[in-house]
């Protein structure tokens, strides 16, 4: 039996700044995980990921990251992805300080 698909968000880093970005429901790329498109369909997720190869002038290192839904918003399920939503934890700087 095929393994059940774990919901995902599509994420990458911006080519010029290196910032963490997510593919949003509006079809653009945003820095907030809250606004990421919550992908529950494996075929759609893989198609969107494949399409990133055409965005090489905009982004780097696209991949699908596991997510869950909480209060209607996608949240990361792994601590690595959680860190990527806000920045380093050693002191308050990076993305969390800019928001």
């Amino acid at each position: 039996m095929a393994r059940a698909f774990t919901p995902k968000v599509l994420t990458a880093n911006r080519l010029l700044e290196g910032d963490v970005i997510y593919y949003s429901a509006n079809g653009d790329w945003v820095t907030s995980h809250d606004d990421a498109l919550y992908l529950t369909d494996e075929v759609q997720a893989n198609e969107l990921l494949a399409a990133c190869s055409k965005l090489s002038e905009y982004l780097v290192g696209a991949y699908l990251a596991n997510a869950a839904l909480e209060d209607g918003k996608p949240v990361p399920t792994h601590f690595r992805e959680e860190f990527r939503t806000r920045g380093p934890s050693n002191y308050h700087h990076g993305k969390q300080a800019e928001v």
Binding site: N13, G18, V20, V60, G61, F83, R84, P88, G94, K95
Partner: peptide, 11 residues
């Protein structure tokens, strides 16, 4: 080759 990596949050 020029020491530039892409890390978790930035280059």
């Amino acid at each position: 080759m020029n020491g530039l990596y892409l890390q978790l949050h930035a280059y």
